[in-house]
Design a protein around this nucleic acid. Structure first.
Length: 453
RNA sequence: GUGGUCGUAGCUCAGCUGGUUAGAGCGCCAGAUUGUGGCUCUGGAGGUCGCCGGUUCGAAUCCGGUCUUCCACCCCA
């Protein structure tokens, strides 16, 4: 039976032209990471579920891809458990591994596991695929590439500052106009504490997160729906009213959070960071956004999100500080901060802005026409000459009429074609044709490689 | 996970309220043109109309299910 060629929902193929354009992005990101002194790291596609579960909140756990155990995976499941049809308890028995959901948690696991070999503060970057069982949409895939940079083992705000500069540098190099939005979890925690609902921080932050999208009233309605008291809600509403530039927002916050030790700490952190930027401002936008919350519940300090100006595709980069992530794996007192760039979304933004139109997708610069078995030896000489000069080139892979070989070069956008038949061979020459202008010239075999810059 | 939406040739799409052999443009292949691509002309290949089932004398068209696409929510890169 024939199988229909198909790939799973939310995944995609990357044809040659797409890879070439993608690499442009990934190379800039990687170069910039390296420029700032970050070291590369790779971890396995799958982790033990115990590593992954509980790090991303309840929603996150649902979005983990689980890997079925090999062999007789039902061995340890009792009849009763199957009859109860309790998916979550059965799945914990038949799956012990899962695909990584992000790169931060595997990184934290790595740091604890290798704590004795690592020199702290450890600055690493990691560019790998992650998987989420989300329902796909535009700019949202089930398999996508994240480019993470983190500094772990230092609680200095200078790291946040550096990451802001890394973000600025990367998007400046990519020529993608963006705005960085920043907030601090301590401010949100302070607010929740002030309002007398410190234990409901997650509910409060996810509601506040929607402020910009749905408006103040909808947020209040959601808070009510979640069972928060009017008193608590009244305590939170002053934040919704704060307006103005970054410093005005901080001043407004100081009034609301006076007396909250944690809240004030958050304000000081944000303010310090903002002042650090004053003498040498970023090229991109930089906004304190008190509605920014982020659902990933391991963040404890600064939270950062980057939006492409004028493109509605969600955030293209995000991250923050996490103080306790390694604690779960048995290493306390190690604070980290990092951000993650979404390769697919950056690609989509740049595609939408027509930024790839002049990118050449040709496999090589020269196609050498294959005239037949006798001439092939000479064609190989041309090939060697070109290769030794660092010019990418290939001989037409097969036998075909000259016209077909030319058409091959044309359809692959190969800019030059080299021809050498009986006549050229006799004189030790090559005919080189420029496929764009259509002009061709005879040159000696010796100088073949030198004609290219 | 909730609600909605789409699915016809490689691509973009047409196909009126069910009625003979399902079309177009582009692309592809071959020839005109056996050492020269793009332009032109001529010819050709390619479709179980997403899949399964139902209604009907008859289904691309109607109904149900399922998968996929896209959108909103949720969440996020």
């Amino acid at each position: 039976m024939q199988v229909k060629p198909n790939i799973p929902k939310g995944t995609r193929d990357f044809p040659p032209g797409e890879i070439i354009r993608r690499e442009l992005i990934l190379n800039i990101i990687k170069e910039t990471f390296t420029l700032f002194g970050y070291q590369p790291l790779e971890t396995p596609a799958m982790e033990n579920l115990s590593t992954l579960l509980g790090k991303y909140g309840e929603e996150g756990d649902k979005l983990l891809f689980r890997i079925l155990n090999s062999g007789d995976f039902l061995e340890n499941v009792t009849e009763e458990e199957l009859l109860r049809r309790d998916s979550s308890s059965v799945s914990s028995k038949i799956c012990e591994k899962g695909l990584r959901y992000d790169l931060t948690v595997p990184f934290a696991r790595f740091v604890v596991q290798h704590r004795n070999e690592i020199t702290f503060p450890f600055k690493r970057y990691q560019i790998q695929t992650v998987w989420r069982a989300d329902r796909p949409q535009k700019g949202r895939y089930r398999e996508f590439t994240q480019c993470d940079v983190d500094v772990i083992g230092s609680d200095s705000l200078l790291n946040e500052l550096e990451l802001l500069r890394v973000i600025d540098e990367i998007f400046a190099r990519l020529k993608v106009p963006v705005t960085i939005k920043i907030n601090n979890r301590k401010i949100l925690a302070g607010l929740a504490g002030k309002a007398g609902a410190a234990d409901r921080l997650t509910d409060i932050t996810t509601a506040i997160d929607k402020l910009e999208k749905t408006g103040k009233d909808a947020v209040i309605a959601e808070l009510r729906e979640k069972g928060l008291s009017e008193q608590v809600i009244d305590g939170l509403t002053p934040v919704f009213e704060i307006k103005g530039d970054n410093y005005e927002k901080l001043t407004g916050l100081r009034k609301i959070l006076s007396g909250s030790h944690e809240g004030m700490k958050g304000i000081v952190e944000l303010e310090t960071l903002t002042r650090y930027l004053d003498p040498d401002p970023l090229r991109c936008g930089y906004q304190i956004d008190l509605a920014l919350a982020r659902g990933l519940n391991y963040y404890t300090g600064a939270i950062i999100e980057v939006k492409a100006d004028g493109v509605n595709i969600g955030s293209i980069c995000g991250g923050g500080r996490y103080d306790n992530l390694t604690g779960i794996f048995g290493l306390e007192g190690v604070s980290g901060v990092g951000v993650s760039f979404g390769a697919e979304r950056i690609y989509d933004v740049m595609l939408q802005q027509g930024r790839f139109e002049n990118v050449s997708t040709a496999p090589c610069r020269v196609l050498i026409i294959n005239f037949g078995a006798d001439e092939y030896v000479y064609a190989l000489k041309i090939l060697k000459k070109l290769h030794s000069s660092g010019v990418s080139a290939m001989i037409y892979p097969g036998d075909a009429k000259i016209g077909k070989q030319m058409a091959y070069a044309d359809s692959l956008n190969i800019p030059y074609v080299a021809l050498a038949g009986e006549d050229e061979i006799k004189n030790g020459e090559v005919t080189l044709k420029n496929m764009v202008t259509g002009k061709q010239q005879r040159i000696s075999l010796e100088e073949t490689g030198n004609l290219f810059p």
